[in-house]
């Protein structure tokens, strides 16, 4: 564990807490893409198949449970909670993400570290996470003004993988045989997808104005 990875995990945890705060405090999920939440639930379920087979550390196990539990709770809330579900932007959140799921799974069948059930699903989860934010970014562009908590949620979600890139650079420089090309390339693509959001987020923060993404 290094400071970059810890910062990344904490930033990721903060993004989840901000989202939970928004939903429970405002009893609303307007501006949040259910499809991105469902993609993230798939990402965590596919990535943490080793939850019960490999014990790495208490921290690792606890964080895996937190990410799986929170992503499923948010999906459940947005689908079935009788108050929250009413504020879901159903007609704006129309991204056909099964294309993404199919493409990522096909890529994982071709490009993986080892051809085993667990490794193929692990590679699938890495590729899927890289594109999971797309429905959310499309929804932000369509829904015009973005409320603060939603903007902060997306910001922290993007920032966490940027910290992981620093972590991979650090591990590459300090550990003799560290090569995680699948994670690194996917992480770069994932962070790059946030580039324009980060730009508009910075502009809104600098001008102390509401976050506006161009349609």
């Amino acid at each position: 564990m290094n400071i970059f990875r810890l910062a990344g995990d904490m930033t990721h945890l903060i993004s989840v807490l901000v989202l939970l705060l928004k939903i429970y405090a405002t009893k609303s999920c307007s501006g949040i893409s259910l499809k991105t939440q469902e993609l993230y639930a798939m990402v965590f379920l596919a990535r943490y198949l080793d939850l019960f087979s490999d014990f790495i550390s208490l921290y690792n196990t606890v964080m895996k449970l937190v990410f799986i539990g929170s992503s499923l709770a948010i999906v459940w809330c947005m689908r079935y909670h009788r108050v929250v579900r009413r504020s879901y932007d159903r007609e704006l959140d129309t991204f056909r993400y099964w294309i993404l799921v199919g493409a990522c799974f096909t890529l994982a069948l071709v490009l993986h570290e080892k051809f085993s059930f667990q490794e193929v699903f692990w590679a699938f989860s890495i590729y899927l996470e890289a594109v999971a934010i797309l429905p959310q970014l499309v929804l932000l562009q369509r829904s015009g003004n973005v409320d603060n908590l939603t903007g902060q949620y997306v910001f922290f979600l993007g920032a966490y993988r940027a910290f992981y890139i620093l972590n991979w650079i650090y591990r590459y420089l300090t550990e003799p045989r560290f090569t995680r090309w699948i994670s690194c390339v996917s992480g770069l693509v994932q962070t790059a997808l946030y580039a324009d959001f980060f730009y508009y987020y910075f502009i809104s923060w600098k001008n102390n104005a509401k976050l506006q993404l161009p349609a």
Binding site: D9, H12, I56, N60, E113, K114, E119, R180, S183
Partner: peptide, 10 residues
């Protein structure tokens, strides 16, 4: 001991 390639990152 064959070290299985375990993903130690989240």
């Amino acid at each position: 001991l064959k070290v299985r390639n375990v993903h130690d990152e989240l």
